[in-house]
């Protein structure tokens, strides 16, 4: 039954890892703008014609 102690500690460590990942994500600015990226990903990468540019 001692395994439960280890399992709980491991599960907490994993959870802490996720908390760390969350804090990193906030720090790197991923939560600054939660609207624009959702629109941006729908655009085509290349506008239709590329030739007319001077």
């Amino acid at each position: 039954m001692g395994a439960i102690f280890i399992l709980i500690i491991i599960s907490l460590a994993v959870a802490l890892l996720f908390l760390g990942a969350f804090i990193w994500a906030v720090k790197s600015g991923q939560y600054d703008d939660d609207y624009t990226p959702s629109v941006r990903m729908l655009f085509d990468n290349k506008p239709k014609s590329d030739s007319t540019k001077k």
Partner: peptide, 23 residues
């Protein structure tokens, strides 16, 4: 958003544009 982020196509001096829509 689309137009502004493609601003580099209007003028080659513009390197990149990132729009923050809510602000």
């Amino acid at each position: 958003i689309w137009l502004l982020e493609n601003l580099s196509r209007l003028h080659n001096g513009v390197v990149s544009v990132q729009v923050h829509f809510p602000k």
